[in-house]
Design a binder for these strands. Sequence first.
DNA 1: TGACATTAGTAGCCCTTTGTTACTAATTGT
DNA 2: ACAATTAGTAACAAAGGGCTACTAATGTCA
Lengths: 230, 230
Amino acid sequence: MPDRLPVAPRPSVRSLTAAVDVVLLTPREGAISVLLLRAPDNQARDRWLLPWDSLRAEESPEVTAARIARGALGANPAALEQLLTLGDGRRHPGDARLSIAYIGLVPQGSMASIGAVWVPVDRLPVIAPRQRATVDAAVEGLRRRIDQSPLAFRLLPPAFTLSELQAIYELLLSRRLHKASFRRALQAALLVEPTDEWRSEGRGRPAQLFRYAPRKRRGGQRGVRFDLIV
Amino acid sequence: MPDRLPVAPRPSVRSLTAAVDVVLLTPREGAISVLLLRAPDNQARDRWLLPWDSLRAEESPEVTAARIARGALGANPAALEQLLTLGDGRRHPGDARLSIAYIGLVPQGSMASIGAVWVPVDRLPVIAPRQRATVDAAVEGLRRRIDQSPLAFRLLPPAFTLSELQAIYELLLSRRLHKASFRRALQAALLVEPTDEWRSEGRGRPAQLFRYAPRKRRGGQRGVRFDLIV
DNA sequence: TGACATTAGTAGCCCTTTGTTACTAATTGT
DNA sequence: ACAATTAGTAACAAAGGGCTACTAATGTCA
């Protein structure tokens, strides 16, 4: 019998693991809501969790995130972009060393898959600390990017009323906006175009539907916006 | 001869590896420059590379990035924040499955460690494709965040002239700015305060030195900035 | 049926912000 | 002394943005 069987060298640390987390956000009942999954196992330490999966071999994080989002929604989100990567001591449901987080935007009124629920971000249940930090970063990141990217339009269906759009901005900015000023600025930016449809919500005058259709604008020859610096 | 020798089960993928890359940026000779290291080994496939290291066990990515930056600069950068995580098929010098990239800002005039050089981003040598994509994303990310964070001030020493500050903005925005408008907007934002020092550059009137000292400003009760949406 | 509540949408006043021209100020070089 | 050069400001005109107050179109209810 030989001294040793040929065994693979055992690394001094357990193999590095990476998870991809997806924070799906949608406006719902006057609040930004996040999609959470109920743990399939009642004995699980975390009863609620963000949609996540291990990063598979040969699959890029983007593709992984898109797959996770599709699984949780039954459809593709309207936008999906990387948020951040966490790898500190905080616990992740999969005990992953690293978690790569993505933020996905879902139009108002979209359904979730079975076992998934929309929860307002200000009434989150207890979830794993790393996922909690991820959700907080996602909401903050959405707020920060809202006037640099057309993200607000991704939180609405393709056709929407201007009041609905204004409500999205008010939700994200946590303050009331002035109707006339809001519309004037929106028109000046050439971001939307009217459709020939109108929607009646029951009471009040019907509202015209618009769609997001950014047109070429000349020169962003604007000065520096120091007032946006935090 | 037996059919098979008893070998350890070989995983279908090699163990996941993660690297941390740091993109150190500084203004230098009228261009944004990035710090590159010369490969210690002349036979290396990549002769130039971004400062990077493997993610160590029990060390968070932030700490790793700070350590890498200190090693390349001999000092701490003025700012260090996470940029993005790449994990596609493009090659990384360490053949890492994942690379977590950080962007570090370095004041104008800072020295690099031995073996490191500042290279203008528009005259980069050939580097590994994944690091090339990282540098591009860093410059774009810096440009995008420049009017939301006081990043421009991190590219200057603590005391600077307003002309130097304007030059930074012109570099980042790639366009000339109007002197009077720039200064008026800066004063209105209460971001700097004058020192009692003046600097004479040789020709022309000496310039007063300022320091970054943001003061509390009341209500950002501004409307929505649709004109910043790309 | 007609007054009222409710929501959508616009006109226009007025103050603030911003782009621009044209100046003054302080230094070096010839 | 005077031109060249860089720093800094004043002041006007144009554009942007906050606000009040209106008109428009629907449902509700007496």
